[in-house]
Design a protein around this nucleic acid. Structure first.
Length: 637
DNA sequence: GGGCATGAT
DNA sequence: GGATCATGCCC
C-alpha cells in the first residue's frame, strides 16, 4: 500500500549511504484515505501515535503527597544509606541520586529526608519508622505499587479506547492511534469519505492538512536544533533562540497529517496528565512520537512536568547526535559490544554500517538495532494484565549468613511478605495463583543460584506453606555445607495467573470442595464473587494461624467450630473475624474454614519432602499474644 | 520446566 | 547500589 513494502528492507534501504537523509527515508510516507479509514493496521499505520508517560521522581512524589508536603520543597527518599529518589526542587541544589546523604544535607540544609517504608520486627504491616536498620528491617515498596496502580487507573478512565501498557512502576506506554483517528475524522469530516473525483479512489492521497497550532503546553523538538551544544540542556537559553530559529525553519517543513495526529495526541495526553495531577497530585512527563522507542526517548527531552513532541521531520537531527547507549536495550552489554567494535558513540556514527555487516557481527539483534537507529520500531503497545507475572521479595544481607540454619529467619520474613502481598492481590483477583516458588541465593561473590518448585493451589495461603517450600529450596541450594556466606536471598512467586484465564488451573480451582456452586455461575456477574472474596480471602493468613490454636476457649458450639478428621483438632471461627453478623455469614464462614483447613493439609502434604520438622503452627501456640502478620517472623533479641 | 543471563527503573 | 520486574537462551 505505501510505496515501500515495509516488511522488506531491501526496498527500504537500497544500499545508499551517502546522502544523510537516505537513512531516514520513511519519515514522510504518503497517507491515503485507506490509511485513515482502516483501524487495524497496527504498527504499519502511517498515522500511528504513541506516548510514554512517566512520573517525575516517582518515589519522592509519592512521599511528598503522602505527607502532604509542599511540592516545592526539596525532598529525597532514602533506602538505607542511599538516595533512591530526588525530587526536582532538590535537584536544583545539585543533589543527585548518587550523592551521599551527608553531602545532600550539606548542599541543602532544609532537605526533607524520608526513608522508604520497611517491615520491622514486632509490627504487622510495613510502616515508616525512625531508626531503620538494614540488619533487622526489610524494605517494602508496596505503597509505591499501589500509587502506581492508581495512576494507571486514571489513565484508563481518560482513555477508554486506547491501549495502555504499564512499562514499569512509574511509566506507561499509550497507543493513541485509534482515539486520535476518531477525533481526526470528527474534526475534519471531509476526510471521512473519498471525494468523487479522487484519481485513485480510496488509495488517493489526503488533501493537504491545515496549519497546526501546537499545544501550548507541549514542547516540540525542533527540526533544526541550535548549532550550539546538545538539545538536552536543562533550561538553558533555548527559549528565545529556538523560537526565532526554530519557528522560521520549521515553517519550511510543511505539516503532515501525522503531525496533526501528534498534536491531537498531545491534547489527549495533556488532559490525562492533568487528571493525574489534580486527582492524585503527581506531575508527569511524556514523550509523543510515532513509536514506542521514540516516545520513550523524547519523554526525557524536557522534565519535569512537560510533554515533548517529536515530529517525524525532527527525527534525523534528533537521533544522529544521540549517544546510542542511551537507547533502550542498548544500555547494557550489547551497546558496549557495539561501541567497542566500532569505537563510536553516537547514532549517526553507526548509520554508515551496513545491515549485512551488523548481522555478521551481532546476529539476530542486528536487524532490530539497524532499524532502531533509523527511528523504526515495530513493537506494539500491548495491554498487560493489571497484575504482574511474578512477585518477588528480596533482601541483601549486610552481614552474610554463615550457618545454614540461619537462613530460615529471612526466608520466613520473605515468605510472610509474599503471603501478605498475594493475599492482598487476591482481594481483586480471588483466584490468583503462582505456578512456582523460586529461591535465589548469592554466596559471597559467586553469581546467584536458584532453585524452584511447583506451588500448590491453595486458597488458604499461609506463611507456613510458603516458608516450608522456601526452606526446602534453601537446603537444595546450600546443601550440607556448614559454612556458607550468603549475601543475598530472594523468594519469588512466578507464573502468577488468575484461574479464569487458564483451563488447567480453573479445573484445579473448581475441584476444591464445595466451591463449585458459589463461583462457577458467575463469570462476569459480581455479587457472589464479591462476598466470597471479602469474607474468605481477607486476612486468610492471620486468621489461619489464630484458628489453629487449641486454646480457643470462646464457643465450642457446632455452628462455630468443627473437628478435622485429619488431624483431630477442633477448628473455631475467630471471634475477631467480621463474619458473625448474621447466621448466613457464619455458615458460609465455617464452610470456608473447613476448606481452608483442607487446603492447608494438602499443601503440607505437597511440601513434605522436607526433613525439616513441619512446624505445625498449633504446636507453638503457647504464647498468648503472638504478634500478628509478618511481625512474628522477626527475631526478637 | 528449570536455571541462568541480561536489561530496565 | 538495593529491590523488583520481564524476557530470552539453553538444556
Amino acid at each position: 500500500m505505501t510505496s515501500p513494502s515495509p516488511s522488506h528492507i531491501s526496498s527500504l534501504w537500497k544500499g545508499k549511504s551517502k546522502a544523510a537523509d537516505d537513512d531516514y527515508n520513511d519519515l514522510n510516507p504518503i497517507i491515503t484515505y485507506r490509511h485513515l479509514l482502516s483501524s487495524n493496521m497496527r504498527v504499519k499505520d502511517p498515522l500511528r501515535v504513541v506516548a510514554l508517560c512517566d512520573s517525575d521522581a516517582f518515589y519522592a512524589a509519592c512521599e511528598q503527597v503522602r505527607l502532604g508536603i509542599d511540592p516545592s520543597r526539596p525532598l529525597v527518599v532514602l533506602q538505607w544509606e542511599s538516595l533512591i529518589a530526588v525530587n526536582y526542587p532538590a535537584r536544583k541544589f545539585g543533589i543527585s541520586r548518587m550523592a551521599k546523604l551527608k553531602d545532600a544535607k550539606q548542599l541543602c540544609p532544609e532537605l526533607v529526608v524520608v526513608h522508604v517504608a520497611t517491615y520491622k520486627e514486632g509490627e504487622k504491616e510495613p510502616g515508616y519508622w525512625d531508626n531503620v536498620d538494614t540488619r533487622t528491617h526489610k524494605v517494602s515498596l508496596d505503597y509505591y505499587r499501589r500509587e502506581s496502580m492508581k495512576i494507571i487507573d486514571v489513565f484508563k478512565e481518560g482513555l477508554p479506547t486506547g491501549e495502555i501498557e504499564k512499562a514499569s512502576i512509574d511509566e506507561a506506554f499509550i497507543d493513541f492511534t485509534n482515539p486520535v483517528r476518531e477525533i481526526l475524522l470528527a474534526r475534519f469530516p471531509y476526510l471521512a469519505h473519498v471525494p468523487a473525483d479522487a484519481p485513485n479512489g480510496i488509495d488517493t492521497q489526503l488533501p493537504p492538512p491545515p496549519p497546526i497550532s501546537w499545544e501550548k503546553l507541549s514542547v516540540v523538538v525542533p527540526i533544526f536544533p541550535g548549532t550550539e551544544g546538545s538539545e538536552d540542556q536543562p533550561e538553558s537559553s533555548t527559549k528565545g533562540h529556538d523560537l526565532d530559529n526554530g519557528a522560521q525553519e520549521e515553517s519550511d517543513e510543511a505539516p503532515t497529517w501525522h503531525d496533526v495526529a501528534l498534536s491531537i495526541a498531545a491534547e489527549l495526553m495533556e488532559k490525562i496528565r492533568d487528571a493525574v495531577r489534580t486527582k492524585l497530585g503527581y506531575t508527569t512527563s511524556a514523550g509523543i512520537a510515532r513509536n514506542k522507542f521514540l516516545a520513550k526517548l523524547v519523554a526525557s527531552y524536557r522534565k519535569p512536568n512537560t510533554q515533548s513532541i517529536l515530529r517525524n521531520a525532527a527525527i534525523p537531527n534528533y537521533l544522529r547526535p544521540m549517544a546510542f547507549q542511551k537507547i533502550r536495550f542498548l544500555g547494557g552489554k550489547l551497546g558496549e559490544a557495539i561501541a567497542n567494535e566500532y569505537d563510536v558513540s553516537t547514532v549517526g556514527d553507526l548509520l554508515t554500517i551496513t545491515l549485512g555487516e551488523m548481522q555478521r557481527k551481532f546476529g539476530e539483534n542486528a536487524y532490530w538495532v539497524y532499524e532502531l537507529l533509523r527511528g523504526i520500531d515495530r513493537s506494539e503497545v500491548k495491554e498487560k494484565g493489571s497484575q504482574n507475572k511474578s512477585m518477588l521479595a528480596s533482601k541483601n544481607l549486610p552481614q552474610p549468613i554463615i550457618n545454614a540454619t540461619d537462613g530460615h529467619h529471612w526466608i520466613r520474613v520473605l515468605a510472610a511478605e509474599l503471603a501478605l502481598r498475594l493475599n492482598d492481590a487476591r482481594k481483586t483477583s480471588p483466584t490468583l495463583w503462582p505456578k512456582a516458588v523460586v529461591l535465589h541465593a548469592r554466596k559471597g561473590y559467586q553469581t546467584a543460584r536458584s532453585k524452584q518448585a511447583a506451588f500448590p493451589f491453595t486458597r488458604n495461603l499461609t506463611v507456613d506453606v510458603i516458608a516450608s517450600a522456601g526452606d526446602r529450596l534453601w537446603k537444595e541450594l546450600v546443601g550440607e555445607s556448614k559454612i556458607i556466606k550468603v549475601t543475598s536471598i530472594q523468594l519469588a512467586f512466578t507464573g502468577l495467573e488468575t484461574a479464569e484465564s487458564g483451563q488447567q488451573s480453573i479445573e484445579t480451582f473448581f475441584k476444591t470442595p464445595d466451591r463449585r456452586q458459589q463461583l462457577s455461575p458467575n463469570n462476569h456477574g459480581e455479587p457472589t464473587l464479591k462476598r466470597v472474596r471479602e469474607e474468605d480471602l481477607d486476612d486468610a493468613l492471620p486468621q489461619m494461624v489464630a484458628l489453629e490454636g487449641e486454646e480457643s476457649t470462646s464457643c465450642t458450639d457446632a455452628s462455630t467450630s468443627f473437628i478435622c478428621q485429619r488431624c483431630g483438632k477442633r477448628l473455631h471461627l475467630a471471634d475477631s473475624a467480621n463474619i458473625d453478623i448474621n447466621g448466613d455469614g457464619r455458615v458460609e464462614a465455617l464452610q470456608t474454614l473447613r476448606m481452608e483447613h483442607n487446603d492447608f493439609h494438602f499443601a503440607q502434604d505437597l511440601s513434605k519432602t522436607s526433613d525439616e520438622p513441619q512446624e505445625d503452627s498449633a504446636k507453638k501456640k503457647k504464647k498468648r499474644k503472638e504478634p500478628e502478620g509478618i511481625a512474628k517472623f522477626f527475631n526478637r533479641k
